[in-house]
Every structure is written in C-alpha cells, then in structure tokens.
Amino acid sequence: MLNNQKLKEIEALLNKYKALKTREEKGIYFVEGFLTFSRRHNEFSIKDTYYIQIEIPSRYPKKLPLTREIGGRILRIPDNHINEDGSFCLGTELDTKMKIAKINTLLGYVDELVIPFLYSFSYKEKFGEMPFGERSHGYLGVLEFYKDYFKTDSYLKALKLLALLAGNIYKGFHKCPCGSNKLLKNCHGKYINRLKSYKNKHNFKKDFDNCYEMIANYVKQS
C-alpha cells in the first residue's frame, strides 16, 4: 500500500523525470522508465540516458529503494558494483544514509545517489576508470568508510573508534583511541555521536564483529 507521503514523493520524482512511470506487481511498487540526466563533475559534463527500475520496498523510507538497470547496458558483474539481486550498490550503508539524510525523499535518492552512480558508469565506459573512486567489496569497504569518516591514518584506529559505537563504553573523558592524546569529547567524540543517529548499537556491533574477523583473518594469513 502507498501512503500519502510515498505518493507525494513519487509524484515529485515523476514531475522532474517525465519519462518514468509507476507500476505495481504483487503488492510491490516500481518506478520504471528512461532516466535522462546531465551532470558535471570537475568540469566534465555527461548527458546520458538509462532504462531503470526503482523498487520501493514496503518498509520505505526505513529501507532504501533498490534500483536496477533493465536496458541490458550494465553487465551484472561485481566489477560494475551490482549486487547479487541485480540492484546498484550505490555505496556502503552509512555512506548512502548520510548522503541523503538532508533530503530523504525519492527525488533526493535519485538525484544524489542513482544519478552519480550512472554518471560514474558512463564515465567508466569512456575512460576506463571510476571518477569518484570506489570502495572495496565486502567489509573491507565498510572499514574504508569508517577510516574516511573518522579521518584516521590506519584501519586499526578506525576499528578502535568503531568499537566505541558497538559497545557501551563511550565516556567523554576517556582518551581518544586515535592517538591524539586528547580527551574523546575534544577529539572524535562528535563524530561518534553524529553516527549514532543512523544505526543502532546492534548494527554497529555487527559491523565491528565482521571487520574484526576480517582483520584477524588477514593477520593470520600473513
């Protein structure tokens, strides 16, 4: 079922991208059609069109929509950042959540996540490389996100900071694990508190456990 809020968001999306249409199948709502965009990055502009399908999950907006290219242009291989179910992997969970936090609507999702993804695919077709870089697959990519977000110089420090989110051990007057010799509240405390609004402790713990296991395996192997 579509509630009022969802309807409004779909309407706004169709208003901007006129070649998209809605479709319902077995209780799931889709927005489908040609998405034409013209965007620029570092002075290089690309105009392109893709045939896409956006699946709006019933738990939207808690769960983000899934977008697939169904024109047969983007090969469904891991190198193209396509998930097993054929949907785009627009970024790590927190990357995407933080990106659209300010404009959490379908239109924001398409403008800020889907189109940059398609832009980078068009760019890769021409120049053979991704314009914004790419994350490693799996939990290494997740850890890369934490490392970038906390602006630390090592994965280990990022993992230590993640541990603070996963456990219940955040105290502002503790020393910050990033090695700055400052108190947490004067150092990475604000980054940690900002992240708390995007995920609950349980999910951070899952991230931590998997990242930890990955590093442990890596250390064992080498």
């Binding site: 013209s38 965007r39 620029r40 990055h41 502009s45 105009k47 891991p78 950042h81 396509i82 998930n83 097993e84 785009f88 992997c89 627009l90 970024g91 790590t92 990357d95 995407t96 990106k99 996540l113 189109i115 940059p116 993804f117 832009y119 980078s120 991704m130 314009p131 914004f132 870089g133 790419e134 994350r135 490693s136 697959h137 799996g138 939990y139 990519g141 997740v142």
Partner: peptide, 14 residues
C-alpha cells in the same frame, strides 16, 4: 549541468 558534490563511492556486499 548541476555539479555532483561529494558523491558516494560505489561498493558491493559480499
């Protein structure tokens, strides 16, 4: 054309 600011980096779940 609109500038793409702070784009996310594509990823993939294992």
């Amino acid at each position: 054309p609109e500038e793409i600011a702070n784009p996310t980096k594509p990823w993939r779940k294992n």
